[in-house]
Design a protein around this nucleic acid. Structure first.
Lengths: 239, 239
DNA sequence: CGCATGGTTGAGAGGTCTCAAGAAAGGTGG
DNA sequence: CCACCTTTCTTGAGACCTCTCAACCATGCG
């Protein structure tokens, strides 16, 4: 029941990014025009590189699955800079655009829809679309700042709570939550690399959150049983 | 000799942001036009808020002094998200634009030149200027990503080396370095809040770098005595 | 049934923090 | 030019958080 792949539904009512664009006030006409500028969906496997760290890679929209903007250090340490979720626009603006030694990697199977390179101008030229992309870019930047604060000044306990709330809020925007629960399709290793912690410590910290009845985690799903208590813990602010 | 305030020089050859715009290929004509859209310089004292966390604050250029994009937690913990240095454009794009509970605060005396609100469109309408601002914004974003990696996956030792190199490189761009040395006009407390460390630990870590002959720090100035060794330590990549 | 993957636990080491005090540096008034 | 005061830097010691290493358990799949 957590699947959205079943059946054939008018595409404009299904795709998460369409949903988001509508929320940002983009007109149906513009979305239809956007469609003509997009390739058919591409599929990727876990660990595939969606966006090499070279310029010129065409931007795309996330249809399904999770990806990460990731940077690896020479000795194998790895930092997930940002999660890229269904509905996200990737590579339009600066973020994830041609960044030295920073790549976009699928952390689950992923489907994306790429922009035909020759038609990028058509998209950025549309007032509604470019405004929507600017909003999305602004939110992306806010999340980056939140990530800095999390890593710089929050404890493991606070970081976990904050990230879980952020993921819930983002997925809720594109209709991928079910009340307080959502699919969390990544290993604790991925969470650790996003939170700047070791796998083991993430495991223990999540257990603490569970023991306190704040969250429930199993089988790749998360339930935030007390969102306001979680928000209190880590000063999470929605929006 | 570390001062740039002496004498009266044609303004277009002095201001750090002018220097940067020229480096980004902006034409003299456009810079002259930009000037007509700017207020006279404003001065601020240490700890003044340059940019409250409300929308609509007019963007500005940093002329001199250092500021920080800062977020404070309820219990007094503080994270410097980014340093804003002479020549930086602040508030044009997303970054630092109306962000909840994130403020721009002067950490030394600061002089800025604000844009007349009614003329923002004129600036963003100019192809050369808007391209330059986009480049600046992209670099800002790259630095944010670097900050995430520093905080998430680097040790105190590496973080200090990396930040010092970044500051040197940025100041070099606007002509505020003198070979390997530059003015570092902030307390260790500020560095600590930028590095996600305690003041005491920053102090000890900087001493280690000094003991090893990599840097020299005193009287508000820094000398990077072995930049390539520092870069090796923290995987710093210029540009 | 056996293997592979991911989650869980234990124990000790290490990095970083806090508290607290002393030294140095810088500014001010006499 | 000195005495004083404030600010900033430095040092010490113990506590705490998080890490690493190394097993062991649970689950799923062939």
């Amino acid at each position: 029941m957590l699947s959205a792949e079943s059946g054939f539904v008018p595409i404009s009512r299904v795709r998460s990014f369409t949903r988001r664009l509508l929320a940002y006030g983009v007109q149906d006409v513009e979305i239809a025009r956007l469609d003509t500028a997009l390739h058919a969906p591409d599929s990727y496997q876990t660990n595939d590189v969606l966006h090499p760290s070279r310029p010129g890679a065409p931007p795309f929209f996330m249809l399904s699955g999770w990806a990460c903007l990731v940077r690896e250090l020479d000795d194998g340490r790895r930092q997930m800079v940002a999660f890229l979720l269904p509905g996200d626009a990737v590579g339009f603006d600066l973020l994830t655009q041609s960044r030295e030694s920073t790549r976009v990697v699928a952390v689950t199977p992923v489907r994306v829809q790429r922009v035909r390179p020759s038609l990028i101008g058509q998209i950025t030229g549309s007032p509604g679309l470019s405004r929507a992309l600017a909003i999305a870019s602004d939110q992306q930047q806010t999340r980056l700042i939140n990530q800095v604060v999390r890593l710089g000044r929050q404890t493991a306990y606070e970081r976990c709570a904050h990230l879980l709330l952020e993921l819930h809020a983002r997925l809720a925007e594109v209709g991928e939550t079910y009340g307080d629960s959502f699919r969390l399709p990544v290993k604790q290793e991925i969470l650790a690399d996003a939170l700047g912690l070791s796998l083991v410590h993430v495991n223990r910290t999540l257990q603490q959150l569970r023991r306190e009845g704040l969250v429930e985690l199993h089988g790749g799903s998360a339930i935030l049983q007390d969102r306001s208590a979680l928000a209190e813990i880590c000063e999470f602010r929605a929006g």
